[in-house]
Nucleic acid binder design. Structure first.
Length: 260
DNA sequence: CTCCATGTTTAGAA
DNA sequence: CTTCTAAACATGGA
């Protein structure tokens, strides 16, 4: 479920399990659709005999430096995830990459739908520049958030999800932040007063932090997320949750808590 | 069979 | 230039 909080949880998992262990073999099981701008042999050559050194996250990208000097950049599409396995652990379905360690354990990258991409990068800043990513959403404080929204005229939900405005917010967490701020997703950014924008920033920040703290499981029952379904009762007012189409995606709202 | 799903990219319209 | 829409990409679950 990879938006910013999910990717941050993957990053911590990689840190806790896979740093400074020599990759004895890098297995590329997928065809050309997975590796981004790098051949399987080049990718293997940069990984094999090397180790993950330190990780960084920018938006929905997870990067790790290697002692070969390169960085690996993981993007998870809609269904990707990373998991470290012990020698005896069963493998999940749809494994596309496996980084084998000498003790028989391995770090696997799995992706059911083939929308994820993995590649090499010079550095995190370089990747962000190439991809045109805005600052990481969690790195924005109030004034920086205002600066990113300055002059924008689009609707608030697509703006939050625009990776060049800020990186990391997707469909689910934009819905959650807007719900908790009491903002309708189709409100135009330019009609929001400064206090409203700051409120949104504070709420978004808290939502992302909380989701990471609970490792994206067991969400508070007064959040929209566990009730993100057409006709479900709103956890705050008891009204009915509705599904709208906003920029081609489903947006869930409580019309009473989030007036248009 | 139909519709839906946490993402990105592209083309074209306004 | 910005913004919006639709379609495409792959696959599986309801």
């Amino acid at each position: 479920m990879p938006e910013l909080p999910d990717v941050e949880v993957f990053r911590r998992h990689l840190d806790a399990t896979s740093l400074d262990r020599e990759v004895s073999r890098a297995e590329v099981r997928a065809g050309g659709e997975l590796l981004d701008d790098v051949s399987a042999s080049t990718f293997r050559r940069h990984l094999q005999g090397h180790a993950f050194r330190r990780t960084h996250r920018h938006g929905k990208f997870l990067l790790s430096s290697l002692d070969s000097g390169e960085w690996v950049a993981f993007h998870f599409g809609m269904t990707g995830f990373l998991r470290a396995l012990g020698p005896e652990d069963p493998e999940p379905d749809h494994v596309r990459l496996a980084f084998h360690f000498e003790d028989g354990g391995r770090l696997v990258y799995a992706c059911q739908r083939k929308l994820g991409r993995v590649g090499l990068a010079e550095a995190p800043e370089e990747l962000a520049r190439e991809r045109g990513l805005g600052p990481d959403a969690l790195a924005l404080d109030g004034p920086a958030f205002l600066e990113r929204l300055e002059g924008r005229t689009g609707r608030v939900k697509p703006t939050l999800m625009n990776q060049s405005v800020m990186a990391g917010v997707g469909n689910v967490y934009s819905d959650e932040a807007l719900f908790q701020t009491g903002l309708h997703p189709e409100r135009s950014v330019d009609e929001l007063a400064e206090e409203r924008r700051l409120d949104l920033q504070g709420t978004l920040h808290a939502v992302l932090e909380t989701a990471i703290d609970i490792e994206v499981t067991g969400f508070p029952d007064d959040w929209l997320l566990p009730h993100r379904e057409e006709g479900a009762p709103c956890p705050r007012c008891g009204g009915e949750v509705r599904r709208l189409r906003v920029s081609g995606r489903s947006a869930y709202v409580c019309p009473r808590c989030q007036p248009a």
